[in-house]
Amino acid sequence: MSFAAVLSIIVSMVFVNNFVLSKFLGLCPFLGVSKQTKIAAGMGIAVIFVMTLSTALTWLVYRFLLIPFNLMYLRTITFILVIATFVQFVEMVIAKKSPLIQRALGIYLPLITTNCAVLGVTVLNINSFFVNGRPVYASFMLSLLQSFFAGVGFALALILMSGIRERLELNNTPKSLRGIPVAFIIASLMSLAFMGFKGFVF
């Protein structure tokens, strides 16, 4: 795992292949939770956390359960169940152990189960770091890295978007474009700007 490979995964996940702006994963929370910066930041942290740990779990399940029993076609159904159970479990643990985190992140966790970005990143990891049912070199670490920075990219887009939308509240935007349509136009221009990192090579 060379330094250059690590860096190119980071730039690719945060900018070039940004989950929201380029792959359109997790658009629903992106539009729903981006009205206030504070809430957006909370959601961003929650997504990074869930994405990274779900990746760890699904990778292990895939490597040590699905592959040995040749059940790779059950990937989708297994992954969604693992993620849903995991999120439920985290919710329970947090509610018991730390009311502080519960207050900060609690409301976002149920939303994350149906966030396609989380399922998306787990499937993507399997697609990119397994070749013919065998893990590539450092597959587990690369998967964790990829999902962590996919989460960072999601959080970045979400937080930037929330700042812009807060400002637009005061604006004289055309009535028919207010709300979701203008959010799409902003996202489009942000995506246009992020395309500047296209073709990134170290």
Binding site: A193, F194, G196, K198, G199, F200, V201
Partner: peptide, 14 residues
């Protein structure tokens, strides 16, 4: 490191 030779436009937009 990017694919484009010039980044002024994109950097200001970002």
């Amino acid at each position: 490191w990017g694919g484009y030779p010039e980044g002024v436009c994109f950097s200001i937009l970002i």
